[in-house]
């Protein structure tokens, strides 16, 4: 598949503060890409650079093999769904969606047809004459999506579009967005700080932190093979323990040796060891290498979340069975459950 957008060595700073530090990103055609990271990581800035609302200090934006770095937003074949929808309050639903087509001076007949199709796609048939200010958040969201998509952009940019919706509606819209993306076969670039949203919808997830890309990969890979402790912690919950690599496939954690599957580290190299809470098994046998006392048990619906204090670490454990608070338990995990990572700089 061909790259539809490439960002090459993008650097942006505001008031002397670096916001994006050397961003390199290739986005393939028809891909659903999510930029994921905590607030202030530069994900929205990256999106705005693709949209043309911010000029990078250096680096270039390539769109279908053409350099569009200097092109203003109104000359780019991308459209944006803005964070708070940014619908035009003085226009009704129909006119909001028709806006881009009117600017391009399409004949009335074509406009009517295209808008009707779009409203059908986002399930807003019959809302044409409604005032956008009297719509619910989810409906406004759909209008914003229709308004962008009616222009048949090559790429749709979405800036935390579901942020203002409640949980249930957000889940619905996630499925809906994915359906729209697949039926129209266009590239979606989606910005969110919600890791679950990112994992659910994306083909590719780009994890960002402090203006740099931490990891790019499929959701499964990002979850199972996080490249560093930050990614591991941000994508789902994790136990991150200091460890020392003794040799290939052998690591020391909490003073005990454990077999693992990672290799290629230096001998005696300090590393971050990541173990997912759901990969830990608790046993009644308190004679295991690592054992501790159950400090708390919280019911989370599908599973219980427990904190187990061992002599030098507090373990987060997810399990469908919960021991008594205060009981002594053994902590078990297998070689496959241990993920070894280079220590993060800084």
């Amino acid at each position: 598949m061909e790259n539809v957008i490439s960002l090459n060595d993008i650097v942006v700073s505001f008031d002397g503060e670096t916001v994006l530090n050397n961003i390199n990103l290739d986005i393939k055609d028809k891909e659903f890409v999510t930029l994921l990271g905590p607030s202030g990581c530069g994900k929205t800035t990256t999106l705005r650079i693709i949209g043309g609302f911010i000029q990078p200090d250096s680096g270039e934006v390539i769109f279908e093999n053409k350099n569009i770095t200097k092109l203003p937003p109104y000359r780019r074949n991308v459209n944006t769904v803005f964070q708070k929808y940014a619908l035009f309050p003085h226009l009704n639903v129909f006119e909001n969606v028709a806006f881009g087509l009117r600017v391009r001076k399409l004949p009335e007949k074509e406009i009517n047809k295209a808008v009707a199709e779009m409203l059908e796609l986002v399930n807003l048939k019959g809302f044409e004459e409604r005032n956008v200010q009297n719509l619910s958040g989810g409906q406004q969201q759909r209008v914003a999506i229709a308004r962008a998509l009616v222009n048949k952009p090559k790429v749709l940019l979405l800036d935390e579009p579901l942020g203002a919706l409640d949980l249930k509606l957000r889940k619905e819209m996630q499925t809906e967005l994915k359906r729209i993306q697949q039926s129209l076969e266009i590239t979606f670039i989606y910005v969110t700080h919600d890791q679950e949203e990112a994992l659910t919808m994306s083909d590719t997830v780009v994890v960002m932190k402090d203006g740099s890309i931490q990891q790019i990969g499929r959701p499964v890979d990002i979850y199972n093979e996080p490249q560093n402790a930050f990614v591991a912690d941000f994508i789902g919950e994790s136990n991150i323990i200091d460890g020392i690599m003794l040799k290939d496939r052998l690591v020391a954690i909490c003073g005990h040796e454990f077999e693992c599957v990672d290799s290629g580290f230096d001998e005696k190299q300090p590393v971050d060891v990541v173990i997912r809470p759901e990969d830990i098994t608790l046993t009644a046998n308190a004679d295991e290498k690592i054992h501790g006392v159950v400090r708390s048990v919280t019911f989370k619906g599908v599973h219980y979340e427990m904190v187990v204090d061992s002599s030098d670490f507090s373990w987060l454990v997810h399990s469908t069975k919960a021991p008594e608070v205060g009981s002594e338990v053994g902590i078990l995990f297998g070689p496959d459950d241990i993920h070894i990572m280079n220590k993060m700089k800084g």
Binding site: P73, F82, A86, L87
Partner: peptide, 11 residues
């Protein structure tokens, strides 16, 4: 409404 100026340019 925030961003409507940018939204118009986007369109």
């Amino acid at each position: 409404t925030p961003h409507i100026y940018e939204a118009a340019q986007d369109l």
